[in-house]
Amino acid sequence: MHPEILAQEGYTSAFVDDSPVRELFPGIRLRPLWRAPSGAHANVLEMDAGTSWPTRDIHDPGPEEVYVLAGTFNDGARDYPAGTFLHAPAGSWHVPSTTTGCTLFLFYPES
């Protein structure tokens, strides 16, 4: 590996196990990984088996992009296994849940 590549300005990294954990709802935890000055941000969301969002998750003001890292994620309508990518446009909504438990990578390109 070339050291000059690693030293590029603005290049950052985060190790998920070192990211602070915030419980959003019982059995649902958020680990922030990165935030840009523009408000764009990336997180890992962990959902225990049998958990669900208590209300609609509305994507406002911008879209949400989800990659299912492990387990099976349900958006309130169907199941998505590990390896699935989802793009939810601004203004859309879903009710996240999981019967098996899941880990998601979440990216919000807009604030």
Rank of each mutant, 00 (worst) to 15 (best):
L33R: 03
A42K: 06
E9I: 02
H2D: 15
V44T: 14
V21K: 15
A7Y: 10
R22V: 09
F15T: 11
S52H: 15
A36I: 03
G50H: 08
H41I: 00
R29L: 00
S52Q: 15
R31I: 00
H41G: 03
A7C: 06
S38G: 01
L6R: 13
S19C: 15
M47P: 08
R56Q: 14
W53R: 04
S52G: 10
V21D: 07
P54R: 07
L24M: 15
L30R: 13
L33E: 08
A36R: 12
E46V: 03
L45M: 14
S13V: 04
N43Y: 09
G50Q: 05
S19Q: 10
T55L: 08
I5R: 12
S38C: 03
F15R: 04
L33K: 01
F25S: 06
P3M: 09
G50T: 08
E4M: 11
A7W: 09
P3G: 08
F15E: 13
P20F: 07
S13W: 12
S13G: 10
V44N: 09
W53C: 08
G10W: 07
P26L: 08
P3L: 11
E9H: 03
I5P: 02
A14M: 09
N43Q: 10
S38F: 04
G50W: 10
R22N: 02
E23A: 06
H41F: 04
A7S: 13
Q8W: 06
L6W: 12
G50Y: 06
V16H: 07
N43S: 13
T12W: 05
G50E: 07
A49K: 10
A40W: 07
W53D: 11
S52K: 14
L30G: 00
H41R: 15
E46Y: 05
V16S: 13
W34P: 01
